[in-house]
Structures are given as C-alpha cells and as structure tokens.
C-alpha cells in the first residue's frame, strides 16, 4: 500500500464522488416522483394500469446494465442519441421508478380502509383523500422499503462505468488500469461509497424511527 498513490488520486476520487452523488440524487428524485405517480395510478386502478404493471415487470426483471445499453447504444438506432450522463439518470429513474412504485403502493394499500371511509364521511374528494389521509399515512408504511431502495439505487450507480461515466467505480478502474495499484484504488473506492452510504443508512433509520414514533397509532 503506497500513500503517494492515494494522495495523488484524491482529486479524481473527489470528482467521481460528487458526480456519483449528483447522478444518484437526480435519479433518485426522479424515481421517487415516478414511483408516486405509478403507485397512485395502480392504487386507483386508473385506465392504463395494466401497462404500468408491464413497466414494473420489465424494469424489475432486467439488469440496469442492459437498460443502460438499450438507452445509450440502442436508441440512437431510431435517431434518439442521449448523452452518457442523461442516459445514467434515465436508467436510474427507469429502474428506481418501479421499485419506488412497489414501495409506495405497499404503503398506500396498508392504510386501513376505515381511514379512507373516515375521510369520505367528512366529505373529502378523491384528491383530498389522497393528499390528507392516504399519502401521509401510506408514506410511513413505505419508508423502510423506500430507504432500502435509495441505498440500492446509489449502489447501482457503479454500473454507470459501462458507459464511461467517471463516477467512483469508473475512477477506480481507470486508475488501476493506468497505475496497476489495485489495493490503493479499491480501498479508496470502498471508502468513497462508505462515506455516502453509511451516514445515509443511519440517517434513514433514525428518520424512519422518529416519524413512526410521531405519527403511528390511532
């Protein structure tokens, strides 16, 4: 283990770290929004919900690697050329959207029927019921799964290396290829992911516990 290689690689890893963080953040926000829309669509069985079931099946049962290849190398065949970073974000939204939709849907369906009826008898419209009763309670039931999905999606960003995005994994592999110092760069890669994931994981657990304590039980 040579300290000098680690020192020299720090700027590259910082860039990779922030790029990973940026792509993950945008992708996860997109996945959350897509997930909420899909979950409500399925919850209310709005017309077209069968198509969304198909989307979930395709998204969950194909690897992100293949999804990225399809977007990055496949779509230009029909004239749609999407730059690498946007491909990465789209891939993460496509994959994460289905996982988030399942998590949200599970939460919405866990809200007791009598809560919905309580909202109906005070006259709430479907939209008001969703906003004031079903969503705020459903999200609490969904939180553990949403937290797990966020961690999962951040780890999936390591696959972006296949479309040459200089995120953390790509940075490590690139430097190993240049300098043949596996131990140093693999260690830096692990540390970089740990800096993101361990506090996030602890923070999500804390947040989940706190919200449950505040809001659950009638």
């Amino acid at each position: 283990m040579s300290w000098i290689y680690i020192q020299q690689a720090i700027p590259a890893f910082i860039n990779g770290f922030f790029l990973t963080l940026k792509l993950a953040t945008i992708g996860i926000i997109g996945a959350l929004l897509l997930g909420i829309v899909v979950a409500f669509w399925l919850y209310y069985q709005v017309i077209g919900h069968h198509v969304l079931r198909l989307y979930i099946a395709v998204s969950r049962n194909t690897p992100l690697l293949i999804q990225l290849f399809f977007i990055y190398y496949g779509l230009p065949g029909i004239g749609l050329k999407i730059p690498a970073e946007q491909t990465a974000i789209l891939g993460l939204i496509f994959l994460g959207g289905s996982y988030m939709a399942d998590a949200f849907l599970g939460g919405l369906e866990a809200v007791p029927k009598i809560q919905v009826e309580s909202g109906q008898v005070v006259g709430l419209s479907t939209w008001q019921l969703a906003r004031y009763v079903i969503f705020p309670q459903g999200i609490l039931y969904s939180l553990p799964a949403i937290g797990a999905n966020i961690i999962f999606l951040i780890k999936e960003t390591s696959i972006f290396t296949v479309i040459a995005i200089p995120e953390i994994t790509n940075t490590a592999l690139d430097l190993i290829g240049q300098n043949y110092r596996s131990n140093e760069y693999l260690l830096m890669m692990v540390v970089s992911y740990a800096i993101i994931l361990i506090p996030l994981s602890l923070g999500l657990s804390w947040f989940e516990r706190r919200l449950r304590r505040v809001n659950f039980s009638n």
């Binding site: 007791p112 309670q137 809001n215 039980s217």
Partner: peptide, 14 residues
C-alpha cells in the same frame, strides 16, 4: 350526513 364509527378512526397524523 355525519358518521361516527365504532373504532373512532381519527387521522393519526393530524
């Protein structure tokens, strides 16, 4: 038409 249920069912988040 107001209604009160057996299990009260107040909204726990409010």
């Amino acid at each position: 038409i107001g209604m009160v249920f057996q299990s009260y069912d107040l909204f726990p988040n409010r």
